[in-house]
Amino acid sequence: MGLMREFTKGLWKDLAPFRVVLGLCPILAVTKEAETGLGMGIGVIFVLTCSNVIISSIRNIIPRQVRIAGFIVIIASFVTMVELFSQAYFYPIYQKLGIFIPLIVVNCIILGRAEAFASRNGVIASALDGLGIGLGYTMSLVLLGSIREILGAGTIFGVDMMWASFRPFTFMAEAPGAFVSLGLLLGIMNAVSRKS
C-alpha cells in the first residue's frame, strides 16, 4: 500500500511541473507539439526511473560530500543512452528536441528526486517514485503540448483537428504562448486542488 502511494503521488499530489513547479525549462521549450512533449516525457521516465534505482542501491556507498557529483555522473550516463538511442531510432524527434535531451542531466526534477528520495529510500520505492513522477511529467507535457498544438497549428500529434478555414492562433506556438498557457493551467490546477 505504501509503495503504491509512492507511485501515485507523482500523478497528482507532487505533479512535477504544476504542483511543485519544477522542470519548467523543457516544459516551455518542447511543448510546441504534443509529439515532442511525449518524446521528452518518455526520455525523462527512463532516466528518472533508472537513475533512481541506481542511486538508491548505492546510496550507502557514496560519500555525502561528493553525492551531487556522483548523482550527475549516473544521470548523465542514462541521458547519453537516451540521446544515442533516439538518434538511432527516432531521428525526427531527436532533431526537434535538440539540446533539450542533453539538458535532462540538469533537470531539477531528476536531481531533486535523487537527492530528496532515492538517496534516502529503498530500491523498489525509488523505482516506483521515479516511474510515478516521470509519468506525471509526461502527462503534463502531453497536455500542454496538445493545447498549444491544437490552437497554434490546428493539429494534434500531426492529425488535423480543426475545420478547413481555421487560421491557426500561432501565438500559442511561440514562447509567450507557452508562458501564458502554462500560467493558466497552473492557475486552474490550483483552483481545482483548493476546492477538493
Binding site: 487560421r167 492562433f169 500561432t170 501565438f171 511561440e174 509567450p176
Partner: peptide, 9 residues
C-alpha cells in the same frame, strides 16, 4: 500584442 505576434494573422 497577442494578435500582432500571431504570424498567421
Amino acid at each position: 500584442a497577442v494578435i500582432r505576434i500571431t504570424k498567421a494573422w
